[in-house]
Design a binder for these strands. Sequence first.
DNA 1: ATATGTTCTACTCAGGTCGAGATTAACTCA
DNA 2: TGAGTTAATCTCGACCTGAGTAGAACATAT
Lengths: 268, 268
Amino acid sequence: MTDDERDFLAGYDPRAYDPVAVTVDVVALTIRDGELHVLLVRRGGPPHAGRWALPGGFVRGVRDAEDLPAAAARELAEETGLQAGTEALGRVHIEQLGTYGAPGRDPRMRVISVAYLAFAPRLPDPTAGSDAADAGWCPVRALGLTASGAQRPGTTRELAFDHAQILSDGLERARSKLEYTPLATAFCAAEFTVPELRAVYEAVWGEELHAGNFHRKVLSVPGFVESTGASTDQGGRRGGPRARLYRAGDARLLHPALLRPGREEEVR
Amino acid sequence: MTDDERDFLAGYDPRAYDPVAVTVDVVALTIRDGELHVLLVRRGGPPHAGRWALPGGFVRGVRDAEDLPAAAARELAEETGLQAGTEALGRVHIEQLGTYGAPGRDPRMRVISVAYLAFAPRLPDPTAGSDAADAGWCPVRALGLTASGAQRPGTTRELAFDHAQILSDGLERARSKLEYTPLATAFCAAEFTVPELRAVYEAVWGEELHAGNFHRKVLSVPGFVESTGASTDQGGRRGGPRARLYRAGDARLLHPALLRPGREEEVR
DNA sequence: ATATGTTCTACTCAGGTCGAGATTAACTCA
DNA sequence: TGAGTTAATCTCGACCTGAGTAGAACATAT
């Protein structure tokens, strides 16, 4: 049977072809207490029972056929207990991350996973209203991810399947997108201060930034933030003047970009 | 039936679940006669008979299970007549572009396509040795793509399915990657001159660059190119001194980046 | 109330990069 | 031989960056 004949058959009866399952997995990131967190669910049954995994599920193919971003939004809504169409879910930014389909990544069968990346302001705890056995926001730092996408040995929360690699790719994407898009505003409330925005960058990049230069650059990028004219009611927790309030501007790209410091170690 | 029960069944017998087919499509780009070209095949049968499409095919799921990048390389090799493992194919850069799975994008059934992007130096014409009815390198400019990814009405070569959108995404990825990676060297021969490298940037970006500034920036980026010490045998076609020869360096990221000019029109 | 420390915002300064143009040398073609 | 073309280098002003400083506003402790 040639490829053409096989493709022809598969075009009209996929059951005659090799069975492949498609899932959607979500890397949902948020910031809690100044630290970056990812949404994880604990697997109830085999394989990898008891391990933590990214929320996900099979794509509905024909009945209730849904687009891939819609499937990702549905998975996120199911795990976080947020109702679709809610204003809180509407502020969530969702984008495609990549597709993972290495043979053997799921021991049961051939599974191809389309991974999505979601950014959101602080979301509620997913303990209530979720159909997963256990779910929660986990500090990314506690997962012991290395630069190559593997987990350091001895990590308490071992991720299932190749989810450590997917999460690592998602983190790199998020760190990179903060540089040249106004994505950081998706982590903030509707109105925010420049120091709050700086805290987002510091949490995602994992390093402290120069407050003065950050302030100057954010305000100099056209369309990044726009002033509301108001200020915070009180000063900072440990003193300082009241910060001015801003909301997200209409720019989709930051120019000039806010580049990460310490990128001297070019990958060779 | 709840989602959990359905997932359980699908985990062990995918035929009990909604049928979804997975294909791999390839956006193969090369430069011929100073212009950017994409590899297209003409569809023999319905749907979209007679239209041009990106080369692609179904993923082998269980028998001869192959990884997604391997499937993309296989599709490219089949259409171009290049043998796998050849040195010419080894110089081809392949990366994942994105996954397209909107319901109805293929009228026959639910098809989810994982798109790959391939860059290569000038490859042979795919007329011989290919199993497709017709295949060839098409100038990207002739397809009349708009910024939003659609084709201008009246274009002679109308692309099948959502392949105009996929190609448009691939072009934007390629243009962007030239900025901060040494990808342009993948379009060149093993040894090349700075003007040849500049011609690659001009072909992909579609605009002329300042020769002097380009020269200075390429040589100032550490690890981008390294000198061979040799020069070309003859000067340019229409005169001029002999250009020095370089080969690709070991950098994976360009710092500082070579940004596109005229990006003032930030997307708002 | 006063003192002390913290934080937001604004400003300055040296160094580097960028775009645009000019210049010199090398080469082809008529 | 002369004209035109091109590679490679240099100059110059505008702009951006990181680092540091300074002042004003605010919370907290004494």
